[in-house]
Design a protein around this nucleic acid. Structure first.
Lengths: 143, 143
DNA sequence: TCACAAATGATAATCGTTCGCATTTGCAAA
DNA sequence: TTTGCAAATGCGAACGATTATCATTTGTGA
């Protein structure tokens, strides 16, 4: 199956916990999961893993490019599958609803700015925080 | 003096610790300070404050608009005086050197994107992470 | 000057995350 | 296949940043 292939080509042993985490990300409704989310979901579905292992696996997956880590406001890291296409995020401060976007104009400007400042760009993070309007926010008053 | 005025109009009592922190930000070479930075610098200069108070004061100052908080990668919050003009940051991953920039094209695109997604923008954070080139990085191998 | 709410200091507690170490498990070579 | 061993795991302690608790002190308005 392709999952163990993913792990192999990332230079990681194919272990049970790693497969479980990978499965979870591929089958979860919510694409953005924190370590705690992952841990709780696995436990809830009867999979027995250690929280420490979840943290380790997430970090390894980030390193090997399987996942992307995001540091939103609020301290905790959130991960999502790396589909190869970079994108940024817009977050509703009311309900936590999250949308993705990509804007080539912004990307281009960033490259330019980095160059002007004598930096070689490594990475960047752009988060827009706002409020959904009542109608357009599908998760209003969730939590 | 204008400092106590700042505090007054922010609806805060003019207390010694608050004045000390405000002074520090106004006189410090480095404009971006973490709670620990503030604490250590005050202690070092003979000012006797509690770390808890530093945290409290920084949060209050953020709330009242005197300071702006940034959450860079690495977990800890960093604060700077709010000069009224919004700007974004570009950070050197090697030496931590930090530069500020403002790009109206990016700002405009963000507004547009938020609108397209049905969000009213509240705030946003954009950090570019990169490496200074050897010459242009004035703080290379600092820490 | 007084009185009282608000702010402080000291320290315990919390939260997310990492570390140390004994045990288990992929996996490759025999 | 079995075996050996490095790599991965689980558990709990440890950690760094931050927040909460609560008794004591301090601005400030009457």
């Amino acid at each position: 199956m392709h999952k163990s292939k993913d792990l192999h080509q990332a230079g990681l042993k194919v272990t049970l916990p790693r497969l479980k985490v990978l499965n979870l990300f591929e089958s979860s409704e919510n694409h953005h999961l924190s370590a705690e989310d992952v841990f709780k979901m696995l436990i809830a579905s009867g999979e027995d893993v250690s929280l420490a292992t979840v943290y380790r696996v997430l970090s390894q997956f980030e390193l090997s490019g399987i996942l992307v880590r995001h540091n939103f406001e609020g301290g905790k890291s959130v991960f999502e599958l790396n589909h190869g296409e970079h994108h940024d995020h817009i977050v509703c401060l009311q309900c936590g609803h999250l949308e993705e976007f990509f804007d080539s104009a912004i990307e281009a400007r960033q490259k330019k700015i980095a160059a002007e400042h004598g930096f070689t760009i490594h990475d960047h993070s752009l988060y827009i925080y706002g409020d959904c309007t009542k109608e357009s926010c599908p998760h209003k008053h969730r939590e």
